[in-house]
Design a protein around this nucleic acid. Structure first.
Lengths: 120, 120
DNA sequence: ATCATAGTACGAGGGTTATCGTACGAGCCG
DNA sequence: CGGCTCGTACGATAACCCTCGTACTATGAT
């Protein structure tokens, strides 16, 4: 049986409630190039992605660290599914708290990418 | 004679060119509560304000530090006028680089203020 | 010239961050 | 079971950041 909602989905991780999300924390999370890149890919894809889907130029431990920062700041929602940990943007929560902000940020990041390319 | 454009206006400070402004640096600058507060006041007022106009709960040296971060990230433009140092938001530059971002950011900050009040 | 005001420079303290490496745990597959 | 992959935990390191105090410069007013 492969019920996604069963306990087989794995232990769950601490997330801030919507009301606990702070703008400063979100901006800090997004001020790191690696994390901004993760969020951009997440937004481009639209669905949930595993941590290992991202091919980042850092080690596994560092990757874990960045995803934790994103989760604890309220930017992403993380769920275990089997051995994989799936990551999804908390679009609804963020749009509710800060209407238009996420889209502006993604647009700004996209523009800068077009302007400067990959060079960090 | 009180010509504002004369050399009497004082030495000038290094600012990043518009094209050099990086989103990550802007987000980092705005992720500090003190600096976010400064930017909010600056936006609310609309005109240039001196450093000493702000009544921040930190020392003068720390205030100097925060304004430098804001200037070096391209968020504000600083100009000496007599003994005062005037600060203005770089609205045009930011709007050109990242259309809508500053307004979204300010709106988000305003919303959070209404929601949570002053308590940092 | 004297003094007050606005801000700077420098150095230090204490905290946080990004990064790594190695060792470990938890699900899956043969 | 045994091994593979995914991700975690922990410790270490080096860099960075916010804050302060003290000493200093520069401009304007008396």
């Amino acid at each position: 049986m492969t019920d996604v909602t069963s306990a087989a989905a794995g232990r769950d991780l601490p997330h801030p409630d919507r009301e606990e999300i702070r703008l400063e924390a979100v901006l800090h999370a997004l001020s790191d190039p690696m994390r901004l890149r993760i969020v951009r890919e997440l937004a481009a894809d639209g669905s949930e992605l595993s941590c290992s889907h991202f091919d980042l130029p850092v080690t596994k431990s560092t990757t874990t660290h960045h995803f934790r920062v994103l989760r604890e700041s309220g930017v992403v929602r993380q769920v275990y599914r089997g051995t994989a940990k799936m990551n999804g943007l908390r679009r609804e929560d963020l749009d509710d708290l800060f209407p238009g902000l996420l889209d502006s940020l993604l647009a700004a990041a996209g523009r800068q990418y077009l302007r400067l390319g990959d060079r960090a």
